[in-house]
Nucleic acid binder design. Structure first.
Length: 424
RNA sequence: GGAGCGAUGGCCGAGAGGCUGAAGGCACCGGUUUGCUAAACCGGCGUACUGGGAAACUGGUACCGAGGGUUCGAAUCCCUCUCGCUCCGCCA
């Protein structure tokens, strides 16, 4: 959420930012409406408060007269009619305010200057690590996984539906092994506090991290309870400190959690649906950082590095993209995507998205800190990234590590967790 | 699921329709004094919105868990909700 002051004083920043996202066509009219509504809102505030001040004076007079045993009927009558006028004005005001705040929730963040303008074709390649294996003989992961008996897509579909995965044997153990490797690395060498958070959250939390109100269709909700299954642990972790003041000495605060993630993928029907490429329920280790504003840019580099470290441990070739404004998520001001190369499907697979939200989430959630004692509270900056999402990692491991005889070589760092150096 | 009790400033805690932005204490900040530390004393000490001002500052409004209601006027009375505690029921 943006500061309403931007609408009043820095409208050009919003227009320019939305233009860079390619969203000015739809958002420009909203800005025009907001400009007028914000003027109305302040005029109504002035009108209401003026009448309240007059009423306060009158009620003081009533009190004095009553104490003195005098008649206060005139003041009571005036005060009553002011009260009626106040009620009318306040009804107007609250209608205006709810329209304004509803519209404000529709506005995405604006990206930082160094983020390229335009759609995803303007995403910038920042760096690459390792050598992608360009080998047409590598088979897709769903074929080898079925042969190895570690993936049972048919029964997953029977039990729940397509996009719900059943892992078996060493496949199931690989999920557990990867989670442990990731959490151990983040807590031990990267200094994150491990947390275990709810998979079901309320509407306020979903709004705080900007999944709502715009993306309700993408989420699973609980019948009759106004609760949602989380699409990422970002939601519960970042909401941990909602409506709190964080001690400046505790910044930056780094939290990690493993969680299952649930996504309807409503708009993506038919795309990348085979195997593990796009599923409705998956496992992920998430990284979240709360930072002071002046360090948040460096914090994003740090966090991205932590996610990359896992890919290096897994010896998977990857590349880092700086997303163009139009491809950057709703609440983010700057996002790096990490993609691994999966030779069996011949594609780069997104396995992590590392974002700096600036104060956009913190303003919705009211998460603040005081730089020095006695100073006014400021919003913290929030960041998060996957570290990492499992299904595509498993796909990449099964394809990148594939041997001529159909067996799979397991990277050294994962071997102690999985208990074997090879599958098949 | 049912019953009872509770929620007041950074913290503790009074107040029970108007004289309360809210006693008192703690913490914090400034000062005086005592050769340091400490103590004592004096003063200060909330947030948000909105108007005026270049600014220091200043006018107004709101805020006693949240939202409604009663009333000329609500921290105070009524209703609903949220959360916490205690008890009952149920339960992995």
């Amino acid at each position: 959420m943006h500061d309403l002051r931007l609408v009043r004083e820095q409208m050009h920043l919003l227009r320019d930012g939305f233009a860079r996202r390619g969203k000015l066509d739809t958002l420009g009219p909203i800005l025009d409406r907001l400009e007028g509504l914000e003027r109305d809102r302040r005029a109504l505030i002035t009108a209401v408060e003026d009448r309240k001040a007059r009423r306060n004076t009158l009620t003081q007079e009533v009190a004095q007269k009553k104490r003195a045993g005098e008649d206060a009927a005139a003041q009571v009558a005036d005060s009553r009619s002011l009260g009626e006028e106040i009620a009318r004005l306040e009804a107007d005001l609250s209608a205006t305010e709810s329209t304004v705040s509803g519209l404000m929730l529709e506005l995405p963040n604006i990206t930082r200057d160094e983020v390229p303008a335009g759609d995803e074709s303007h995403n910038a390649l920042i760096r690459e690590w390792g050598t992608p294996r360009l080998d047409a003989t590598v088979r897709p992961h769903w074929e080898v996984a079925a042969e190895l008996g570690i993936l049972d897509l048919a029964r997953g579909a029977k039990v729940s539906g397509t996009g719900f995965i059943v892992y078996r044997g060493l496949g199931a153990k690989m999920v557990r092994a990867l989670i442990n490797l990731m959490l151990d690395t983040h807590t031990t060498t990267h200094g994150y506090e491990e947390t275990w958070v709810p998979l079901v959250v309320n509407r306020t939390s979903m709004t705080g991290t900007t999944q709502l109100p715009k993306f309700e269709d993408d989420m699973y909700s609980l019948h009759g309870d106004d609760m949602f299954l989380i699409p990422t642990a970002e939601v519960p972790i970042t909401n941990l400190y909602r409506d709190e003041m964080i001690d400046a000495a505790e910044l930056p605060k780094a939290l990690t959690a493993y969680s299952a993630c649930f996504r309807k993928e409503a708009g993506a029907a038919g795309k990348d649906t085979r195997g593990l490429l796009r599923v409705h329920e998956f496992d992920k280790v998430e990284l979240v950082r709360y930072a002071a504003p002046d360090t948040s840019l460096a914090e994003l580099e740090l966090l991205t590095g932590h996610a990359e470290a896992i890919l290096k441990l897994l010896e998977l070739p990857y590349r880092v993209l700086l997303l163009a404004a139009g491809d950057t998520g709703f609440g983010s001001s700057k996002t790096y995507d990490l993609e691994v190369y999966a030779p069996g499907v011949g594609k780069w697979l997104e396995v992590s998205s590392c974002s700096n939200f600036g104060d956009f989430q913190a303003r919705r959630m009211n998460i603040r800190y005081r730089q020095t004692a006695g100073e006014k509270p400021r919003f913290v900056h929030t960041l998060n990234g996957s570290g990492l999402a499992l299904p595509r990692i498993i796909a990449a491991l099964l394809e990148h590590g594939q041997q001529a005889d159909g067996s799979i070589a397991i990277p050294a760092a994962l071997q102690p967790y999985l208990g074997t150096a090879r599958l098949g």
